[in-house]
Amino acid sequence: MSETPQQRVAAAIERVPYARFLGIRAELKGDELTLVMPFSQHLVGNPLLPALHGGVVGALLEVTALTQLAIASKSERFPKTVDIGIDYLRSGKPVDTFARAKVVGTQGWDGGLRRCRPPKLMPEGASGRSRPRNPHACTGIVTPATRSATGLRSFTTPTRS
């Protein structure tokens, strides 16, 4: 049975050392990608509450955005991040956490320029401070697992192949 390009990308992310460090696993249903980050003690940033480290939540979102963008652009190579902005809605609970990404605007690699819009995935009440100023590509994500743990927009541009 031959692998689809989507499956290859999803498998590729699991081979990235840093994704393994976080324990990230990819689940692919059609074109829809969900990254799963099972809870582990080393992901904790606040041992009192306890809560996931904000940087780890940001890292999960970034990895998801990069993978989704690679799938959308039908590229075997991962894009490079130009900038990323994360708005924290609440602390991440010490449970398995999921992330999804949506490509909302692209330029150059699949035709013309489209305006970047804040993604529909953003939960109600998420910060309205949208920063769609990079015209190259933009991706929006939430982690719906623990009901909108975090929302963000990230803007990335794929590498030229």
Partner: peptide
């Protein structure tokens, strides 16, 4: 090259 997430976590902390 080191992952962007490392820099995110490091700088956040």
């Amino acid at each position: 090259v080191i992952a962007g997430g490392v820099i995110t976590t490091f700088l956040d902390t």
